[in-house]
Amino acid sequence: MQNNSHLLNKYNIVKQGAVFKAFQLVLENSLDIQNLKPHEQLRVLWKAYKDSCPNNNNINGKIFEAIIATVMLENGIGPIFSQANVVFVPNVNFDLIVYSKEFGPISISAKTSLRERYKQADLEAVSLKYVHRKARCYLVTMDKPEAIRLEKKLKEGDLLGIDDIVLGDEASFDEMIEFLGSISLEKPKAVEIIKSFYVYDVVQNDK
């Protein structure tokens, strides 16, 4: 079976530097992901990363984002905005965002492990929903014990912004991909910061 090195040029997700080299190694050392379910695709690529690359906290998260984006694109989900800023949501860089006609922005927070990081993801989700009331927010992780704990928090109402906790290598990831594939994704239209029928301004006196 062929490896996945062709995906590097096909999607051009990772541009340069150490992350590019690590992702190239991941794709070269993983088997063909076609005909696999989305969570199986993610599992294959993540295993290739763990087996091929030394553990590096500075790179882990970026590779995880790249793997999620690759799997989404392979399943027809796009366009995807990476490290995205949203108008009127200050000081937040969202890991991944898609934009839908039905819900507006849908954020995907990618966390290889959680610990206290879920609080940041939940705060970002609250900030997004404060402006875009119908927005949906997913937290995708590989940390199963913490995911189970957060599922309990979600059911008890302790998470204010996150809509769903998704395990990247289990069926819940397939369900997220299926949902994203069922709605209309598009590039958002340019937003005018101020729009008005009339504009009143100071008259400058001619000198």
Rank of each mutant, 00 (worst) to 15 (best):
V44D: 02
S82D: 01
G76Q: 11
V87S: 12
N58R: 12
N12G: 12
W46D: 04
V14P: 04
N58T: 07
N56M: 00
M72L: 13
E65C: 07
Q24R: 15
L31N: 15
S30R: 00
H39S: 12
Y11F: 13
L42C: 10
N9E: 13
N35F: 13
K37N: 12
Y49D: 03
R43M: 08
F20D: 02
G17T: 10
N29A: 05
D51F: 06
D32H: 14
N55G: 09
K37I: 12
V87T: 11
N57Y: 07
Q24P: 09
A48L: 00
I77D: 00
M72P: 02
S30F: 03
V92K: 11
E28M: 12
A48T: 04
I59T: 07
N9R: 13
L7E: 11
H6F: 02
V89C: 07
H39C: 09
N58K: 13
A18S: 15
R43A: 06
V19P: 02
S82G: 06
A22D: 06
N35R: 15
V14G: 00
N55Q: 09
F81C: 01
P54H: 07
V86R: 05
A22N: 03
V89M: 04
N9F: 08
N4F: 04
L73W: 06
Q34V: 14
W46G: 00
N55S: 13
H6E: 01
N9T: 10
N91T: 14
A18C: 05
I68D: 03
I68S: 00
I67S: 04
N75C: 00
L8D: 02
K50T: 10
C53H: 11
H6Y: 08
N55M: 09
K21L: 05
L8M: 13
N35S: 14
F81V: 00
P54V: 04
L27V: 02
K50A: 06
N29D: 05
Q34A: 14
V92G: 08
L27W: 03
V19Q: 02
I68C: 08
D32T: 11
N85Y: 12
P79C: 05
A69D: 02
E40S: 10
P90C: 04
K21H: 10
G17Y: 09
Y11I: 07
L7K: 14
E74H: 13
K15A: 06
K15T: 13
W46T: 07
P90D: 11
L73S: 09
N29C: 04
E74V: 09
L45D: 06
K21C: 00
N9Y: 09
P38H: 11
L45V: 08
K21Y: 03
Y11H: 08
L25A: 15
Q83D: 05
L25W: 09
N4A: 08
L8C: 07
S30E: 02
F94N: 00
F81L: 03
N75T: 03
K62Y: 02
K15E: 11
N55D: 09
F81Q: 03
L36Y: 12
